[in-house]
Simulated scan of single mutants.
Amino acid sequence: MARLAMVVMLIFLVITMPLAQTQEDGSDQVSWANRNDNGKETVTNLQFYFHDTLSGKNPSAVRVAQANQTNTSPTGFGVLMMVDDPLTVAPDPNSKLVGRARGFYGSAGQTELALIMVMNFGFTGGIYNGSSFTIATLNPALNPVRELSIVGGTGIFRLARGYVIARTYSLDPTTGNAIVGYNATLVTFI
């Protein structure tokens, strides 16, 4: 169990760049979305946090499968976690909810921590309500900064391509609970 907690801790060495942006009026406010439409393609930048909770009464990430050797593997090779994580505008769990990350991640590396991640990031507010994008990517979890691939989307993000720059905001080594930030850049065509 201690190895699983360690693997989960290493899984979420992911965070975005700081979310605070200075507005045109000079005030500092958290802005989680920005769109630039040039008439041919639209570039959207989203900055948000997801809260991956493995402990407590209502965890948002649960182990659904593992290989026989997972418990003896230094990387947790073969473990598969299913997630339904809330997405917020700031690392505070009580900050504004903007959507949910749903999908799975699993340890795919035998000698180094390498996670396969397939997740859908669905949004619930404003012009993004009902839209989503999907990542399907290898996450080299020990790298301090990682680039994850965006492979598609729905709604306003239909035919999206792009990437996520990710880093960990916080990680509890005892529970494996993590708050993870993403800075996503999506390109869609008109």
Rank of each mutant, 00 (worst) to 15 (best):
L159F: 13
Y105F: 09
T175W: 05
N94F: 06
N183T: 12
V14H: 09
R102A: 09
T42M: 01
S73K: 06
V79H: 03
G106D: 00
P86K: 05
A160L: 04
G162N: 04
L4I: 14
S73A: 13
V30S: 09
G56Q: 07
N139H: 12
V43N: 02
H51W: 04
F123T: 05
I11T: 15
T188P: 06
S27F: 09
R161E: 05
N139Y: 09
K96C: 02
F133A: 04
T175L: 00
D92T: 07
L54Y: 13
G109S: 05
Y169P: 07
M9P: 01
E147R: 09
V98F: 03
A61N: 04
A114S: 10
P59V: 00
E41M: 11
Y128S: 13
T185C: 07
V8C: 02
S107A: 08
K96R: 15
E41L: 13
P93V: 08
D37W: 05
P86E: 01
A33W: 04
V151E: 02
P140Q: 12
D84W: 07
N34P: 00
V64Q: 12
T174W: 12
T72Q: 11
P93I: 10
V30W: 08
S55A: 06
A184I: 05
P59T: 01
L97I: 09
L80G: 14
A101D: 02
K57W: 05
N94E: 11
Q23F: 15
E112A: 10
F157L: 03
I15E: 12
A5L: 10
T22L: 10
I190N: 13
E112G: 07
G126P: 12
G155V: 06
Q29I: 08
T70W: 01
T44A: 06
V145M: 11
N71E: 14
F123K: 01
S73R: 09
G125Q: 12
Q69N: 15
P140M: 09
G56P: 03
I15K: 15
V79E: 00
A166F: 07
V62H: 02
G26A: 02
Y163P: 03
L159Q: 13
L87Q: 04
F12K: 01
D85F: 01
A184F: 06
Q47L: 08
N36F: 11
A178Q: 04
G99K: 03
A136S: 14
L4M: 10
I190Q: 11
L54I: 13
N143M: 15
R158D: 13
S73Q: 03
M117S: 13
G152F: 07
V83W: 05
V7L: 14
G130Q: 06
A33D: 06
L10W: 06
S95V: 09
G39R: 02
G106F: 03
G106H: 03
N58G: 04
I15C: 13
T53N: 03
P93Y: 03
Y105D: 00
S60D: 04
F77E: 10
F123Y: 14
P59K: 01
S170D: 10
D28N: 14
T185I: 08
I190P: 10
G106E: 04
T137W: 00
Q29P: 08
I150L: 05
F104S: 08
L115P: 00
Q66K: 08
